[in-house]
């Protein structure tokens, strides 16, 4: 049987277009201190630490080792790193807690998109034989998916504009978001996607604390229990996939138990408007579900942290009693290539 594990604290930076005055560790440290202070834990109390970031964003090899200074990693701590979104670092930490080797875990993620050109940087994660030599950028690939969805009659440009507007409206209540309130739908960046359909480019970091069993109740008034968590992947070739659907999201949601009972909230990691349409369909979310009350990735998209932030935002709503059962989703790769789904619940009030 699974051990009960909960998210007991969440923190994030303000997400900004540039953060030249801060190194990665300088940007990250206040968030680490925030989640530690929220739980009363000190760095030495943490059983396992796991992070997510990307050397290609930083432009330097082993860039994550510098960030480790911020967690007091010397003398050596039990630590790991994933070269992808921090949501997968949370998954690894959850597994570690399942083994019983640790009772608490610190999970963090950060990304600075400002030093490079993130559209070009993300081409380097693609198939090196058939895709990478063509340098198809992240917006172009998302646009191919959006057009497929429009051709299938599942959405149109007006619908997409409404997704964008609703996200940035919601973000008006999120002081950390980069785009808040009305944002013009704008010109085509890569048609059919307009600038308003695309996420802001920026820098940011986030952290959560996980705790198992009774420890969770000691550290948090209302822990966000992870009732299920799973991640799945689509076929490697874009031209093999049906870009209008996300079977891997649906499978991960099934395995996480998302369909057992309705959720009241969903935090979806959809950097592009059309991807929210795909995810709503795959997850069979009804109109009664509050989707992305934080504004989602369309309001703040610190690459490598934006997925972890979905889990953190969903948990924070449970912490403050705004949700009882929430779904959190994270994605990585082109056109929703890999997808993670977690179901979070608060104890009855």
């Amino acid at each position: 049987m699974n051990r009960d594990v909960a998210i007991v604290a969440f923190g994030q930076t303000d997400h900004l277009r540039r953060s030249d005055e801060l190194s990665e560790v300088e940007m990250l440290m206040p968030v680490l201190h925030e989640v530690l202070a929220a739980t009363g834990l000190r760095t030495g109390d943490i059983g396992f630490t796991c992070s997510g970031s990307s050397d290609y964003l930083a432009g330097r090899a082993f860039s994550f080792t510098m960030a480790l200074d911020g967690v007091g990693a010397w003398p050596p701590i039990s630590e790991s790193h994933v070269e992808t979104d921090g949501a997968w670092a949370l998954y690894e930490a959850w597994v570690k807690l399942q083994t019983g080797d640790a009772d608490t875990a610190l999970v963090y993620a950060y990304g600075k998109s400002s030093p490079g050109s993130v559209r070009d940087v993300l081409t380097r994660q693609l198939d090196p034989y058939y895709l990478a030599p063509l340098w198809p950028d992240s917006v172009a690939l998302a646009a191919l998916q959006a057009q497929a969805l429009i051709d299938a009659g599942a959405t149109d440009e007006q619908d997409l504009a409404a997704v964008a507007a609703r996200s940035r409206d919601a973000a008006a209540g999120n002081p950390h978001a980069q785009l808040r309130g009305p944002v013009p739908h704008g010109d085509y960046l890569v048609r059919p996607l307009r600038t308003g359909d695309c996420p802001p480019i920026g820098d940011g970091a986030a952290a959560v604390v996980l705790a198992a069993g009774e420890r969770a109740g000691e550290l948090c008034g209302r822990p966000a229990w992870i009732r299920g968590i799973d991640h799945r992947i689509e076929a490697h070739g874009l031209g093999v996939r049906d870009l209008t659907d996300s079977p891997s999201t649906r499978l991960a949601a099934e395995r996480a138990g998302a369909f057992a009972r309705p959720v009241d909230t969903a935090e979806l990691h959809a950097p592009f408007t059309a991807q929210e349409v795909v995810l709503r369909g795959a997850l069979r979310l009804g109109d009664d579900v509050t989707v992305n009350p934080s504004g989602g990735a369309l309001a703040a998209n610190p690459v490598m942290a934006a997925g972890l932030i979905r889990l953190g935002e969903a948990a924070a709503r449970i912490h403050r009693g705004a949700s009882d059962r929430a779904l959190a989703h994270a994605t990585s790769g082109p056109c929703l290539q890999q997808n993670l789904v977690a179901v979070l619940e608060g104890d009855p009030r």
Binding site: R119, D120, T123, P133, L134, W135, P136, D137, A140, L141, A143, L144, Q145, A146, Q147, A148, D151, Y188, V190, R191, P192, L193, L243
Partner: peptide, 20 residues
């Protein structure tokens, strides 16, 4: 499926606007 690229970027197959 297709997507119109009005601003080709370095390394892409064509240097003038094209459709992916």
């Amino acid at each position: 499926t297709w997507a119109w690229n009005p601003g080709p970027r370095r390394g892409q197959p064509l240097t003038k606007p094209f459709a992916w």
